[in-house]
C-alpha cells in the first residue's frame, strides 16, 4: 500500500463534488461542498457522515449512500471516487478506505455506480437487484433441506476447495460492473459459476447454470467482456479474471452435447 504511514491525527480540508439526484426520474447534477477539518483517521464513509451532518445543519438534505457493515464484507457500499470504483486502494471497499489516502486541499469527485442495469435510486444509491436475479437464474445447488449425505461423504481436493473459495469470496458489490468500460457483469457471474463448477456438489447442474445465468445477465443489459480486466483491479474481494475464462469455458461446455 502506497498510503502514508503517518499516524498522527491530522486534519485536512477538502472540496467534495458529489452527484445529487433526488430520484430515478430526476436528471441529477453535481454539487460541490467545502468540508473542513476532516480527520485523516476517518473512513471515507465517516467523512460522508460528517458532510451529511454539515448539510443537515444547513437544512439541505443529506447525501444518500448505501452502507451497512462498514467492515468490507456486506457489499452494500460502493461509489466511484475520483473515477475509480471504491477509490484508489486495491482490494478495499469504500468503507475501508481511509482519509489518510487524501491530501489537504484535494477535490474529491464522487459518483454512483453507472450502468443501465443499476439504475440510480437516489444520489449515490443504485438498484443492484439485477445481481439477485442472476443468482436466481441458477446460482445455486438444487438441494432441499433434509438429509443430504454426511458432509465427509463428498470429498473435495484441497486445491479445488481453495480455488472455489477464492471465487466464492465475491461480496456482490458491483464494483466490477462500475469499473468496466462496458458495464459488464462477467466477473460477478464468473465468480459464482466458478465457485460451484469447481465443487463436486455443483457439477450436476453446471451446464444449465452457466446457460441460465448468462441468459439472465444479457437480459439485464450488462455489457460484454472485452478483456480489459479493470474489474479485477477494482474488485475489493480480489476475484481473479481467471473466473471469467472459466465462465467462458463453462458456457462453451454447455453447448457441447457430451
Amino acid at each position: 500500500m502506497g498510503a502514508t504511514t503517518d499516524t498522527s491525527n491530522e486534519t485536512i480540508d477538502l472540496t467534495i463534488k458529489v452527484w445529487r439526484q433526488s430520484g430515478p426520474d430526476d436528471r441529477g447534477e453535481f454539487r460541490t461542498y467545502d468540508l473542513k477539518g476532516v480527520s485523516t483517521h476517518m473512513s471515507f464513509l465517516e467523512m460522508l457522515d460528517v458532510l451529511n451532518e454539515q448539510l443537515l445543519a444547513g437544512d439541505e438534505e443529506p447525501v444518500a449512500f448505501d452502507h451497512d457493515c462498514r467492515e468490507g464484507i456486506c457489499g452494500m457500499c460502493g461509489m466511484v471516487i475520483n473515477g475509480q470504483a471504491h477509490g484508489p486502494d486495491r482490494e478495499t471497499t469504500t468503507c475501508q478506505l481511509h482519509m489518510r489516502r487524501f491530501n489537504d486541499g484535494d477535490t474529491i469527485v464522487i459518483e454512483p455506480w453507472r450502468a443501465t442495469a443499476f439504475p440510480v435510486i437516489r444520489d449515490l444509491v443504485v438498484d443492484r437487484s439485477a445481481f439477485d436475479r442472476i443468482i436466481e437464474a441458477g446460482g445455486f445447488v438444487s438441494v432441499n433441506t433434509g438429509n443430504p449425505p454426511d458432509a465427509n461423504a463428498i470429498l473435495v481436493p484441497k486445491d479445488d476447495a481453495e480455488q472455489s473459495m477464492n471465487a466464492a469470496a465475491c461480496i456482490g458489490c458491483g464494483a466490477c460492473v462500475a469499473a468496466c468500460k462496458n458495464a459488464s457483469a462477467m466477473l460477478f457471474v464468473g465468480a459464482k459459476v466458478s465457485h460451484l463448477a469447481l465443487l463436486p456438489q455443483g457439477k450436476p447442474e453446471r451446464k444449465q447454470r452457466a446457460n441460465d445465468m448468462v441468459a439472465q445477465m444479457d437480459k439485464e443489459q450488462f455489457g460484454s467482456c472485452t478483456n480489459t480486466y479493470e474489474c479485477e483491479a477494482a474488485c475489493p474481494a480480489g476475484i481473479s479474471v481467471e473466473n471469467i475464462a472459466r465462465l467462458n469455458r463453462e458456457y462453451l461446455r454447455s453447448l457441447l452435447p457430451f
Binding site: N147, A151, Q201
Partner: peptide, 9 residues
C-alpha cells in the same frame, strides 16, 4: 451436511 451439499466451500 446441509451446508456442504449446498456448496459451501
Amino acid at each position: 451436511d446441509q451446508c456442504v451439499a449446498q456448496g459451501v466451500p
